[in-house]
Amino acid sequence: MKRLEVWLYHLCRLILAAVFIYAGSVKMNDVVAFAGHVAAYQLLPYSSNYLVAVTLPYVEFLVGMLLLLNSRVRPALLTIGGMTLVFMLALVLVLLRDLNIDCGCFDPGGGQGVSAWGALLRDVGLMVLVVLCWWLRTRTSDGESAER
C-alpha cells in the first residue's frame, strides 16, 4: 500500500513536471507570439499582455524543474494550483463571452489547438493531479524528519 502510494506520487509529480517544463519552454521561445495569445483573451490592456508573457513561462518552467528534481514540491504544487485556477477562470470568461481563440496553453506558433472547453477539461485534469500529488506528498513524507 505504502509502496503504491510512493509510486503514484512520483508518477503525478513527473507528469506535472513534464507538462509545465514543456509549456514553459515553448512559450519562452516566442514571448511576443505568446503575448498575442494573452491579448486574445481581451482581459488586460495592450502593454500588460507583454508583462504576463515575459513572466508566466519562466514561472511555469521553474515549478516544472522543481517537481522534476523532487525539491520544494509543495510550494511548486501550490503555484501550479494557483496558476491553473487563474487559467480556468480566464477560459470560463472566454466561454461566457463566446470568443473563438486559441488557448495559448502550449506552443504559441502552432495554430488553432484545442477549444476552450478542451483546455478547461485539461486544466481540471491538472488540478486533480495537483491535489493528488499534494496529498500523497503529505502522506509519504509523514514520519520523515526533513522534507525537502
Binding site: 513572466t55 508566466l56 514561472v59 518552467f61 521553474l62 510550494p75 503555484t79
Partner: peptide, 10 residues
C-alpha cells in the same frame, strides 16, 4: 518561487 520566476523572465 513565483518572485524568482518573474524576476528571471523580466
Amino acid at each position: 518561487l513565483i518572485a524568482l520566476g518573474c524576476l528571471f523572465g523580466l
